[in-house]
Each structure stands twice: as C-alpha cells, then as structure tokens.
Write a protein that binds this DNA or RNA. Sequence first.
DNA 1: AGCGAAATACCACTTTGGAGGTACCTCCAG
DNA 2: CTGGAGGTACCTCCAAAGTGGTATTTCGCT
Lengths: 223, 223
Amino acid sequence: MSEETTAASEAGPASVLLIDDHPLLRKGVKQLIDLEDDLEVIAEASNAETGVAKAVETDPDLILLDLNMPEINGIETLKMLREADVGSRIVVFTVSDNEEDVVAALRAGADGYLLKDMEPEELLASLNQAALGKMVISEKLTALLAQALQAGRTTKSADISSLTPRERQIIKLIAAGLPNKLIARKLSITEGTVKVHVKHLLKKLNLRSRVEVAVWAVNEGLS
Amino acid sequence: MSEETTAASEAGPASVLLIDDHPLLRKGVKQLIDLEDDLEVIAEASNAETGVAKAVETDPDLILLDLNMPEINGIETLKMLREADVGSRIVVFTVSDNEEDVVAALRAGADGYLLKDMEPEELLASLNQAALGKMVISEKLTALLAQALQAGRTTKSADISSLTPRERQIIKLIAAGLPNKLIARKLSITEGTVKVHVKHLLKKLNLRSRVEVAVWAVNEGLS
DNA sequence: AGCGAAATACCACTTTGGAGGTACCTCCAG
DNA sequence: CTGGAGGTACCTCCAAAGTGGTATTTCGCT
C-alpha cells in the first residue's frame, strides 16, 4: 500500500471544498482556484452542517474553512470535521489574526492558517503546498506563533500560582505518571474526586489531557 | 463524613489477611501479630485465588503478601487485588531483595515491602505503621530504591536506542501531548496502528501508560 | 450571619487508551 | 529461500479518562 490508503489524492487535480458563509468571497476564491490546473473546487458550503456533510460526501483533498461563521464557528466546524473522520487537509482561511484563533485552529487539527488579505498568487501557491501536505501559515503569523509556542503558552495559559494546594498536589502525581485510581488511593479520596480536580486542572491550565498536564508539569520543574 | 469512607479501619484492632504459600511462616506471623493488640489476623490464604477471594470477602485493613508463590506470583496477585478494587493496605513480605521485584511491587500498588529476615519487633512496628497508612520499606532496600528512582530507572528500563524509527517518531508526538487519533492523522496511518506502536513502546520501555511515556520522553530530552 | 471558594462525593455518559490476537506485506540476513 | 523484524490494519473487550451535572461540608472573609 502506501498510496490510496491515506490521502485521497493521486490522479487529476486536487479537489477543494470551500466552507465560507460569504458567497462573494467563495466565488472569488473559486475563480482564482479554477485558474490553477492543479486545483479544482468540487463543492461549496455556507455553514458548518452542510460543510461537514459535503466533506464526508466528497472527501476532498483540501478544505478551505472560514472561521467567522454564524451559529457554529470555524473552530467548532473544524472539530466536527475531524470527528467525522474527514481526512482532508484543512486550511483555515480567515481575517482573524488573533492569537487565540490561530492557536485554537492549529490545536483543533488545522493543517494551515491563511489570512484573507493575502495576495492571490500567494494564496494559490499556499493552497498548492497545502494540497501536497505541507503546513501553510501566513507569514504575518509566524512571529505570533513563535511567541505563543515559546513560552509553552497557548492562549493565556495560567500558571501554577492559580492552582489550589490540592491541585498542585495532584498535578505532581499526574506528572509522576499515576493513574487517577492510585492518586485517589494515595490521597485517600475517591477516584471521582480526583477526576474533578483533574478537570479543574485542565480548565485552568488550558490543556487537553493529563498527558499535556504531565508534560507541562515536568517542563515547569514540578518534579 | 470524613471517616468511614476511605480506609476500613476505626473501632477495634486492624484486620490482617495473610497470603503466603508457606503454612509454617503464616503460623509464625500470625502468632506474632496476635501478640499485638492493635492487629488481628482475620484470614489466611495459601495462593492467589483464595487470597483475592478472602480479601474481597473480608476487606481487611492490611494484607501481608508473599511474593514467591507457585502458579501466580505475588506481583500478579497484587494486581489482581487492585483489580478487584481491594482498598486494603497491601504490604509485600518476601525474601527477595531483588530490585526488579521491589520496583514491580511498588509499581503495582504495594503500600510496603518488608523482608522476611526482619526482626520480629521491627516487623510488628512496621505493620502497625502500615495499618495506619504509612508506607513501610525495609531499611535494607532504601539505598536500592533511591538508586532505582534516581535514574528514573525502574527495572532495567531500555533506552531510546532500542526503539524503531517509527516508535521514536511516535514517542515524540506522545510527548507533545497528542492523542492517538491526531498522531494517526499526522503520520497518515490508522489509529489502530498507532495503538500498536504505543503498545510496543510501553512494553519496550517498561512503562505503564502514555503519561509515563510522555514524562520519560521529556526528561530524556526528546522534545 | 451570610457568602464564596475549595474539597469532597456521586451519577450517568462518551471517548480514549490499552491488551490480546490474527493477518498481510516488505525487506533483509542467514 | 526461509525466517524474523518492522510496519500496517482490523478485531474484540475492558479499563481509564473526561464531561456535565448536583450536592454537602468546611473554612475564611466580609
């Protein structure tokens, strides 16, 4: 194997699905893309639901996704797409150069993040790259990203001082690799309660799993 | 609440379950324990199965567990006890001062590790401590333990050189906090396959969860 | 006296993770 | 050319993790 199995490419031009609630912009992008032999818009959608449906239906190579949509925003849509096991490359295409959006999108599994104020040629070049599997990010954002990643920061990211004593105690045990059950045993509380603390920890530190908590703690020196 | 809920103590002497395939030794220990007002042997077992059964049945405060038993060894028994959600303090009582055994026992959730060549008075003192929730370890072992923990080592612990390229690739992603699904996406393989690699990783590194793998990797500098 | 944060507990539920097993393919060494 | 190692996939099954609630107690601060 090694082909056919993962991406749905090979053969002709790479198929593109546009998801954007702005018809005019879709039209413009479509025209632009159709100038390119290697890319072809095979479907469009103006909201999350139909977007996901079309994605599942057409399994495109690339999905261009707007962030600012009514009702269900782009990040949610992104998650929905991934939930639906859409394997397509997903590139966020938006006006927002807000750090939180960028980080959230990449976190949610975006394969690229492009700003709508790009030059058309740049956009095409980026989309081609994306279709080939490269992660594409607008240059304007690289500095911002570097900064965000640097401090291990992602969005605001609180620090250890915002944690309660109990939480600090538990984070160390997580970093020691203990499962909730053992943490509970060690602290003589129920596993359910440990879960509550872990939940709060994840919330406060803006992390997504105990693994991230453990890594964070280790890097933070919470040995 | 705050009492009654966690340990099953209060009231009279702490109840003790002996699990050891050596009847004579059981008898000796029982006599010794019965000299102590604060401890009482309420059951005995000569193998894993009946040991677990009695533990579930009597929910003792303390379980004294021999490691060298036929058929199912002590470590397995220990795991079975924890599986069965036996909340009792479990103290391993054995002749083995082998590092692997000690580490494995503590890993498996033992609350103590005592050597059979202890002085009777020491044993009693230790058991009392254990019944009160203290972790008890024979002094002879402390040096060994310190050494084992020091290098993050636990048992022999293989190193990164024993991993295949694919495994090395995956361990980094685990350390980045990615769940299997995202790792699969990133490597363009199925989640099932990722699980296989993770399984092998756990086996090779002798770790018990992806959290431990992540911590190990971070400490190892696999950023 | 009253309020709010922290800690605890429980419950129902969904999603991940991990174990164990089979199977197929490729590449390389013996 | 046979066999093993590595990689991939798929399967079932069960445990662990996480989410969303509600609720109680304790403690410290107005």
